[in-house]
């Protein structure tokens, strides 16, 4: 850089100027400048609030006010109280079950669309799969209540057909109902990443495997499944993380024994006005989600490395 100015016998100040000009036109500067509005927004509306609840979670609750006395009492209550511990464990259990059910049910759908649908019709199928997802979530959840309820669609049809005499009660206001409803709500989230991963698989790899003597089933087991694992991992995370924080479904169809962590958080914030305890619960929930996700990613690191090649 220095040679330019020196060769033309110009003062050093010109050199500094062009250097600044170069930085201004440089990729790094343009990129940072361009991303700054969005990044600033995320900083103000996400980073600061997250830091705030982290702070609140170690403050003392003083009935409608918050006292600036640092304490770990909120965490002690969130982790020590059997009620909260039960809610937390139930949330984990429900999310894990929903994730398992959703991903297992979704895989064959993604497989069918990727491998058995002609390329020109793939987007139509994906479109059909995504449509229900874009319709009102509240109303969808409520309709499951209608389907599963005491006088609901399932019970009245089964009774009309004479299969049962009494309405089934184990399908509403408990964990089962929460799992069914959430599995329905998060279906496209599971299908799309698996579909994308399956689409990326070079079809000649499958032919090569069969050419090398593997049966179709073993080809799936030894080639297709491992190569689609990045999609499965993404599907698991994208279902698991939001479901653990779902509020509407447990509230509407869960009944008292189906309450999850969000309902507890909401109760602390909007009903009891205990922000510190609510924050401690929220931070704990995030910590659990993050920990489980990281462990899951670690266990699947073998499959994820393939993607980077």
């Amino acid at each position: 850089m220095g040679a330019t100015g020196a060769n033309r016998g110009q003062p050093a100040i010109m050199d500094a100027k062009t250097r600044w000009g170069r930085f201004r036109r440089s990729e790094a500067a343009s990129g940072l400048l361009l991303i700054s509005p969005t990044a600033l927004y995320a900083l103000l509306m996400l980073a600061v609030p997250l830091a705030a609840i982290l702070l609140y979670s170690v403050l003392t609750d003083g009935y409608l006010t918050v006292e600036w006395t640092p304490t770990l009492a909120n965490y002690a209550e969130a982790w020590g109280d059997p009620l909260y511990r039960q809610v937390m464990l139930r949330s984990l259990f429900v999310s894990a079950t929903v994730t398992l059910v959703t991903v297992l049910l979704a895989y064959p759908v993604a497989y069918y669309v990727s491998f058995h649908v002609s390329p020109s019709r793939k987007s139509l199928w994906l479109f059909l799969i995504t449509i229900p997802f874009w319709t009102s979530y509240l109303i969808r959840v409520f309709l499951w209540k209608v389907i599963l309820g005491f006088n609901g669609v399932v019970n009245s049809s089964l009774m009309t057909l004479g299969i049962i005499d009494e309405p089934l009660t184990f399908i509403l206001y408990n964990v089962n109902a929460v799992v069914i409803t959430l599995a329905h709500a998060y279906a496209p989230f599971a299908i799309l990443p698996i579909f994308v991963a399956l689409e990326k698989i070079d079809r000649s790899l499958l032919e090569a495997s069969q050419d090398l003597g593997e049966s179709r089933l073993l080809t799936f087991w030894r080639v297709t499944l491992p190569l689609s694992m990045p999609g499965v991992v993404a599907a698991v995370l994208i279902v698991f993380i939001p479901t653990i924080g779902d509020y509407v479904t447990p509230q509407l169809v869960g009944g008292p024994e189906g309450r999850m962590i969000s309902n507890a958080i909401q109760l602390q914030y909007l009903r009891l006005d205990n922000y510190p305890l609510g924050s401690a619960l929220a931070v704990s929930a995030m910590a659990i989600v993050t920990a489980v996700s990281l462990v899951f990613l670690f266990l699947n690191r073998r499959f994820l490395r393939v993607r980077q090649q």
């Binding site: 996400l46 609030p49 997250l50 705030a52 609840i53 993380i241 924080g245 779902d246 969000s262 958080i265």
Partner: peptide, 13 residues
């Protein structure tokens, strides 16, 4: 990937 309730309560605070 953040549960919406976290976004909601943190903004509220």
């Amino acid at each position: 990937v953040l549960p919406e309730i976290i976004v909601a309560v943190s903004l509220l605070v």
